[in-house]
Amino acid sequence: MLGSLDDGNMVRNDTVDRRSYLRAVAAGGVAVGLAGCNGNGNGEGGVEVAFEIETGEEYGFGVREGESDLQGALDDGLQAARQDDVYSDLIEEYFGNGDDAGDVTEGADGGTGAGTITPGTAPGFAPFEFKEGGELTGFDVELTEAIVARTDYEFGGFEEFEFDSLIPALQDGNIDMIAAAMTITDDRDEQIDFSNAYYEANQAVLVSSSSDIDPSGREDLEGRVVGAQSGTTGEGEVDKLIEDGIISEDDKRIYDNYELAVNDLESGNVDAVIIDVPVAENFAER
């Protein structure tokens, strides 16, 4: 079950066996910590954004294929949330000065006649979705509540899944929409439908502040070990580096969660990690 502990941070391509992979990584991390090797990701030295990659990537809400009513309602709800300044308040709360946006359903004029929708998300991706004091919160979570309150649908409460389980859960009817910082890609668009984009995020290349590596462009990553979270756009960017011959397949490290990737970056096991800009800035500031 545990796969191999000794190559705990290796690339893993199947999407199902995530749990055992995390356990391998976690066990590896504990082993490294106990062995007393340098650092254990306690923020010593910290990380910084070396440069950004313009991907033009946009996040959208996912709905089942053909559910154009819901899709249209979400687009209108997003528009209404922007007009009510709830959208900009949430941007300030999660990416700006941190001021609480307050009650996001205030001033909403939606109904509940069109039925209940249950959104799904994958907590563990601050500031978009994470758990705090046992409660689910984050930019996507509050924005979803704000938007649904501005449609004719009733908000049915979030269900939580692993990121890779979200699309199956949507197709299977466990949830009615995905609000999980999900980038609109052609591959995903073949499986599900997306609302209009609600967030634009480029990718950031994070490096350790204490390392002597200071890349200023993709070419500077030549021969480096680069990591990302499984299934994210960051992983796509790592793949592009491989396609372009900048790094070799062996130098790709994929993690179950970006947190573990940054932990490994601080420990010096990878040279760079590619993640969304707002998330990267969150780390660079801590």
Binding site: P127, N257, E259, V262, R286
Partner: peptide
């Protein structure tokens, strides 16, 4: 997992 993926717990993974 929930604990170390929230902003306040990001340094407490190990």
């Amino acid at each position: 997992f929930e604990l170390f993926t929230q902003p306040a717990g990001q340094t407490a993974v190990v």
